[in-house]
């Protein structure tokens, strides 16, 4: 369960890879992240991003929607409730999280 948990929360890329794109203004923030995360991005998502390449944020026609996290200037993160419910109703995920609490038994782990 722990391996699974680690797998799920770490992106595939190392953080050093991100620092290469972080301040490269020729790459949009979304692209920088997807490059860093490597192959976690599916093909058609990548295509979409290529289109958006030069207008930096998004296509003009859907600007009213403001679904983009940094366009909306929000503080609270956005949650996908269905995923959340699915994730936290599994015993494995819950038990894996236990090590973040003081009630965890550290002796068992090592």
């Amino acid at each position: 369960a722990r391996e699974q948990w680690l797998q799920s929360r770490t992106g595939s890329g190392r953080i050093q890879d991100l620092t290469r794109y972080l301040y490269d203004d020729s790459i949009s923030p979304a692209e920088a992240i997807s490059k860093w995360k490597g192959n976690t991005v599916t093909k058609d998502e990548e295509d979409e991003e290529d289109e958006d390449d030069d207008d930096f944020f998004k296509k003009a026609d859907n600007q009213d929607e403001e679904d983009n996290i940094f366009i909306a200037d929000r503080t609270l993160p956005r949650y996908d409730l269905e995923k959340l419910e699915q994730k936290w109703s599994e015993d494995d995920a819950l038990e894996a999280l236990r090590r973040k609490f003081i009630t965890a038994n550290l002796l068992d782990e090592k």
């Binding site: 929360r9 992106g11 972080l22 203004d25 923030p29 992240i33």
Partner: peptide
């Protein structure tokens, strides 16, 4: 910070800071 904090909003804000 947790690795998952780093998303595109985070990156764009760091660029603003720079």
């Amino acid at each position: 910070m947790g690795r998952d904090i780093i998303d595109e909003g985070f990156v764009s804000r760091l660029r603003d800071m720079k």
